[in-house]
Amino acid sequence: MSTHPASSPAEEDEPFHEAISRAIAILVERREDPPDLTALAAEVGLHPHHFQRVFSRWVGISPKRFVQYLRLDHAKRLLSAPTSLLDAALDTGLSGPSRLHDLFVTCEAMTPGDWKGRGAGLTIRWGLHASPFGPSLIGTTDRGVCWFSFVVGGEAAAIAEFAGEWPGAELVRDQAATAEVAARMFAPVAGPATGSLPLPVLLRGTNFQVKVWEALLSIPSGRVASYGDVAAAIGRPSASRAVGGAVGSNPVSVLIPCHRVIRSSGVIHNYRWGADKKQALLAWEAARTSAAA
């Protein structure tokens, strides 16, 4: 009798991560004149029917409908909707979990001493994982996820950036330790539940940065807020520029959803991993939110 568990649908789709990532990149790049299903499937090397099934499973809607979520007018509609969760003052500290699509995320901020030590005495297990938006690097500790980045510019550069942020920590490559985080972050819409326990995040930043990152968790999936909205939510309405700096320095992208902050005009820009990836993430979340509804 085999002792290996049957593969899950998500595991069966794993070889197609690269194809879906490429398809999303193509649709973002050519959103004003997107290729049809047959042409897009051919570009990523899959049969049209198979491609449609895998894409819809991971993104939640068809490629044709996905393009609709990439348009500027959709971002403007999201921005004009009332951000009710940001209207109230953020007075719960870091103790309350926030909903992030199908995840619960809880945050813990490092002490000032830990922050200055830049990881001294900390063991960080890290791994490289595929995602629908390209390869990613995840770092996790016994206290929570402390790093998430997309790999842009090659693995060596991504690893060097990660290591540079934690010079005092012991870094151990451990794919198994980070695999669950990757699976929960990018689980397909129709996939089985990947666990309901909160996913803890360990934040290393100034008090102001942590307050901004906490505010980002209050922006619902499938929605956006402006830099001014976030500044007002933390009681610093004139600090939009400083908020922008804190948003850009977020060390745990996607889980702390800095991609949900855009200009008040609806223009999507200034993302650490590229504006196209930011636009793709917003469209993906909008599609998942629509599918869930």
Score class of each variant (00 low, 15 high):
A179V: 07
D102A: 12
T111W: 12
R118C: 08
V152G: 02
K116F: 08
T141A: 14
A177S: 13
F133L: 13
P167M: 10
R173C: 14
G168F: 04
T106Y: 00
L103W: 03
R125F: 01
I124K: 09
P132M: 01
A109Q: 07
V145C: 04
L122Q: 13
V172R: 13
W166S: 08
V105T: 06
C146K: 09
G113A: 15
P132Y: 02
R125I: 12
F162D: 12
I159F: 14
S136E: 02
G164A: 08
G121A: 04
A120L: 03
V105C: 12
A177F: 03
E155I: 13
A179K: 08
S131K: 08
W115Q: 01
H129D: 12
A157T: 04
A163M: 04
V105R: 10
G121S: 06
D114T: 15
L171D: 14
E108N: 12
P112Y: 08
A176T: 15
V151P: 05
L137V: 03
D142F: 05
D102G: 07
A130Y: 09
L122S: 06
E108S: 03
G154M: 00
A120Y: 03
H129A: 14
P112K: 14
T123C: 12
A169H: 03
E108G: 05
A179Q: 00
G164Y: 04
E170F: 10
W115N: 09
S136C: 14
E108A: 14
A163C: 06
L103F: 05
M110E: 11
G139I: 03
E161N: 11
T178C: 14
